[in-house]
């Protein structure tokens, strides 16, 4: 049955509540005043000019980007390998592989963060891109794993078999048939891993140093001690990057399909 008026009204009201905080943050970033006002008093882009020219923000921006890209790449490789083992391997029970691959979702970030912190300090990986990227990559693995596993189970074995019958070797079948079929899922998983790292505060806070911090860590510090419109500008930029990445991830498979259609 169609939802009644009340249900629709409640839904729309909640949709407004969902979106409103994001609008508020973006709105306050365009304030002409030095106070965080909403609706903003006078429009100005000076806070954006400030954050793109101050080294505190640009350094953190670069650090965040490096960590997130590296974490996403590692997560894509590890997650895809684990998905292949869970779906096709026979050496290790797939339940064990699945458990290990999704465990990072279950462990609270504070707990994992404390573990990473103790280990990173001992092996001198704290306060750098590599240490944080490794920690973040593990948190991204479940996203890639779940997506690729779903894609792999959907791959028709007949298609692979056809390639084999036509004389393709195992490796060529994998390279020309299976990998292209699961690539979109791996990319979406990778984008989710990127965003997971890009937004992450707790582990990044554990593993920061006076010269190395990511954007969320600085935002968190400022929100606690007193935010400025520049904080809103950074927060808006961080959100924009996440939303753009997702848009690309959602758009790429559709574009590819269109292209294939046109070819045939």
């Amino acid at each position: 049955m169609k939802p009644g008026f009340t249900v629709k009204a409640i839904g729309l009201l909640m949709a407004a509540i969902f979106v409103f905080p994001t609008i508020v943050v973006v709105g306050t970033s365009f304030n002409a005043s030095t106070l965080i006002l909403f609706p903003p008093k006078g429009w100005s882009t000076k806070w954006y000019q400030e954050i793109f020219t101050t080294s505190k923000w640009t350094d953190a921006f670069q650090a965040s980007l490096k960590v997130a890209v590296l974490a996403a790449i590692i997560a894509m490789v590890v997650g895809t390998l684990l998905a292949f083992t869970a779906a096709r391997g026979k050496l290790i029970p797939s339940s064990v592989v699945t458990m290990l691959a999704v465990l990072p979702v279950v462990v609270p970030t504070v707990v994992a963060g404390l573990g990473f912190y103790i280990v990173a300090v001992r092996i001198d990986l704290s306060g750098g891109v590599l240490g944080l990227a490794l920690a973040h990559s593990v948190l991204g693995v479940p996203y890639v794993f779940i997506n690729v596993l779903a894609a792999l189970t959907a791959v028709e074995r007949n298609v692979e078999e056809a390639a084999r019958i036509c004389g393709a070797s195992e490796f060529v079948t994998l390279q020309r048939i299976t990998l292209p079929l699961i690539a979109p899922a791996a990319v979406i998983g990778g984008v989710l891993a990127f965003i997971g790292s890009w937004d992450e505060v707790i582990i990044a806070g554990f593993l920061n140093s006076p010269t190395f911090h990511t954007l969320p860590v600085i935002i968190f510090g400022e929100v606690r001690s007193g935010a400025e419109p520049s904080t809103s500008a950074v927060a808006s930029t961080v959100t924009l990057v996440s939303v753009l990445m997702l848009g690309i991830a959602a758009g790429v498979p559709a574009l590819r399909r269109k292209k294939l259609w046109r070819k045939s």
């Binding site: 409103f20 905080p21 306050t28 909403f38 929100v223 959100t239 997702l246």
Partner: peptide, 20 residues
């Protein structure tokens, strides 16, 4: 609306509630 909110980070949304 759900997706926009979902993909705005926890930190940013919490900051927004502080402003509000």
């Amino acid at each position: 609306a759900l997706m926009l909110s979902f993909w705005t980070s926890t930190l940013v949304r919490t900051y927004a509630w502080q402003i509000l």
